[in-house]
Computed example of a mutant assay.
Amino acid sequence: MQLAPSAFATEAHSSRSSRYAYIPTADVIAGLRREGFAPCWRGRPARETPTAAATQST
């Protein structure tokens, strides 16, 4: 399983320009919850390969 360690960063990475608008992931999730959405997990089935997943239409 791969995770995005920066998903809950507390500030923008130092490589971002001053024009970059940092929005904390927690704030985005809280806003989605207020609007009735709920975050969920979507894992890839073990039998599915990355190539097969990329070619499937959603």
Rank of each mutant, 00 (worst) to 15 (best):
H13Y: 06
R34T: 14
A4W: 02
R33D: 10
L32S: 01
E48C: 08
S17W: 02
R47F: 12
A52G: 14
L32P: 02
P5M: 01
A21P: 00
Q56A: 12
Y20H: 13
E48H: 05
Y22V: 01
L32D: 01
T49Q: 10
D27F: 03
S6F: 04
A52H: 05
L32N: 06
R44K: 15
Q2M: 14
Y22T: 02
C40Y: 15
S14Y: 07
S17Y: 02
R33H: 08
P24E: 11
S17H: 01
A53G: 08
T55P: 00
A30T: 09
R34F: 04
L3H: 06
A12T: 00
A21G: 00
R42A: 12
P45F: 09
A9T: 02
R33L: 08
G43N: 06
G36S: 10
F37K: 10
T51H: 07
A26I: 14
A53C: 12
E11V: 01
A12F: 01
A21D: 03
A38H: 07
R44G: 09
T10K: 07
E35W: 09
Q2D: 15
H13I: 00
A53D: 11
T10D: 04
R19G: 09
A53R: 12
R33V: 15
P45Q: 09
S57V: 15
S6T: 02
A46I: 01
F37Y: 15
Y22N: 06
S57Q: 11
E48V: 14
I23V: 13
R47T: 14
I23F: 01
A53S: 13
T25N: 14
A9M: 00
L3Y: 06
L3V: 08
R16N: 04
A30D: 14
G31W: 03
W41R: 11
A54M: 08
A52V: 03
V28H: 09
R33S: 11
Y20R: 00
T55D: 12
G43E: 12
A52E: 13
F8K: 02
R47Y: 12
I23W: 00
M1Q: 06
H13M: 07
P24Q: 04
Y22R: 03
L3R: 05
T55G: 08
S6H: 05
F37V: 07
E48W: 14
P45C: 05
A9G: 02
A53Q: 11
A54G: 10
A38N: 07
S14D: 12
R33K: 15
S15P: 00
A30S: 10
T51E: 15
A30P: 02
P50Y: 07
E11I: 00
L3E: 02
R34I: 02
T51C: 04
T25L: 11
R16I: 00
T10V: 04
P39C: 13
D27P: 04
T49F: 11
S6N: 08
A52P: 00
P39Y: 12
V28P: 04
Q56T: 10
E35C: 10
P45G: 03
Q2P: 13
T55L: 15
